[in-house]
Design a protein around this nucleic acid. Sequence first.
DNA 1: GTATAAACACTTTTT
DNA 2: GTGTTTATAC
Length: 768
Amino acid sequence: MHNYIAELNPIQQEAVKSIKGPNLIIAGAGSGKTRVLTYRIAFLLENGIPAKSILALTFTNKAAKEMKERIASVVGQSTSRNLWMGTFHSIFAKILRNEAKLLGYTSNFTIYDTTDTKSILKNIVKEMNLDDKTYKPSDVYGRISMAKNNLITAAAYPANAQLMEFDKSSRKPEIATIYKHYTQRCFKADAMDFDDLLLNTNILFRDFPEVLAKYQSIFSHILVDEYQDTNFSQYLIVKKLATNHQNLCVVGDDSQSIYSFRGAKIENILNFRNDYPNYKSFKLEQNYRSTQTIVDAANSIIAKNKFQIPKTVFSKNEVGNKIKVHNAITDTEEGFIVANEIIDSRLTNQLNFSDFAILYRTNAQSRIFEEALRKRNIPYKIYGGISFYQRKEIKDLIAYFRLVINPKDEEAFRRVINYPTRGIGDTTISRLFEFAQQENFDIWTILENINTINIGINKGISQKIHQFFTFIKALSAKLYTCNAFDLASEITLTSGITHELHNDKSPESVSKYENIEALLNGIQEFTTDTEEEIGQMITLDMYLENISLLTDADNEKPEDRDKVTLMTIHSAKGLEFNSVFIVGVEEELFPSKYSSTTAQELEEERRLFYVALTRAKKEAAISYCRSRYKWGSLESCSPSRFIKDIDSEYLDMPKEASIFTEENFETSRNQYFKKPTIQASQEATYQPTLRGKNLMNINNAIHKKVEATEITDITLIQVDMQVEHERFGFGTIIQVEGEYPNTKATIVFKNSGQKQLLLKFAKLRIIN
DNA sequence: GTATAAACACTTTTT
DNA sequence: GTGTTTATAC
């Protein structure tokens, strides 16, 4: 084992070695926090603490994955894989599945995402005959989520005078009732939403002391990353687990607390001293990431905040360049300025595209940069926004999976009962749910007895419902007898989704079809890889568990390596880039006009700016526009107060207001377009991202072109043929089995190894 | 009950 | 500008 301790400065070393009792590590931006956490875990392992006794909680899946890899490189994978490391949500989802019976759930419970939740709330509001403009799903969800994160259950909500008063004064007195109905619905559907994963963990630990005791003794050492962003529910889980041994190490930076809108309590880190009086604290103040200019500029802005733990972050790196401030007439121009800067800087400083990041306040800003980068032929990748798993066709297919695994899943049922159309319309569905509500049945029980109950549905339709019931039931029966990929393929084919998409020749359908193919390929990859790893059949429920808490950011693809990164500042937390562009730094946008009313909100926006700036290693640039399109119409805007908050000695302000005036703007914009547009050969290698309609059309155009020349009649595929696959590359067919159209081929790919592919989905091109 | 077109509302950040 | 809901004809 290499001597990792020597890589640390004295304070970092102390923080790593202090393994007993409560520890608070205040880690300034770029101070080597991940390194300390990683080595601390390695040190624990080295000192005889078994991996399975260490619980390390992170804020994102990505952070967990990264840390796992780093630990594996120090202690080896066979040890590191036994660590309990992951997000709060994923770790406690796992524990809840183990203990589900105690709470009246099954271990196959569904996890509802935000979309599912809002959709159910919408239905409830409708069923209660409330005004859907007053009770907007997102507002109702916000109230319920806030309550859950503060451990106020539906039963306790009406007794809370403060909440009830607030609802009354905001003319939403029925929130408590909606909350009650929603909770009942989730329970009947054997489903939990994101907040339930934490709330129910608390309930589990409160109501079953022996279960709490079990996990208290399993987890002898607990680490929590990004402690400043934990909410009350998370805080209490940690507190309960650590009560006995108090071997708790929390790491965080109050200056980087940016999730209070989601219930995060900065007080958790500020009050650590009160909860654990015997605590030891370590302040990591040396920034190893950024130039002095960047660190000093960041300090100068965060100094404007009143509430913070005193600390002095400093850098001993080079002084570096000043922060460039760009101003643009319009958002379009801003896009081109950034694109041009990237091209220039890449050449002058010999950088890769992946050294650049464009960070914005809202996802809506990304489109304009996509267009500018695309016109300049700069490769980029986008995080956030509409994730792959949120696309309609993917959600639909996954809804079938969900229903097969958990037939009570109300939301999944609603999605697919009439997709593809089966002649079961809204009226019928409403009747079914009305009846369910009235008799307190779950939806599956009603389907099961559809022929014996009388709810005014005609024979023909109840016949169709019965057909659907037997269809799902038959698939459910196969859940544990065949592997995830086989069952998923079967569902895909028999549900009629592919048939539906196949009949429709529109570009949208082609794209959807390809997304479904991509999902199935992903399932196959997961199934084969995991089966190999754990030597056990992987069933569909295991696959679903694996993806239900994932986001796009967790699926880094190898072809995404040298690309400019576009993301919100929130998702950039924890990352670093050589060169960072903070864009749209305007009043009302950053700080957001929704977060400018109270001093606390403004401080959080300022911390967000601090996070953005401290992502940069060498260069940072800020830009703002004088006008920008907001929901379709042009609005004028003014530079953000945050620019004035930065000590001007660190800024390189634009000499003139702008080199562009209103009159010459059209001509000047044309200059940007003057350079040659995308060449055909380059366009073909361009990897599209999964976002935005414009982009989708381009994808479609590309794919269409490819399809016309490449699609292969699958009946031609034979053993020994050389083929090319979109994703896996070149390979040789070694086996063909199954009846058309469900012919399966085993192919050995040069670079991707052996795969079994359903020829119906795998688009292969025959080479010889 | 289904398929289209017009009207409509919406955007802060994420597990 | 975009995705979703409603009005209208089939």
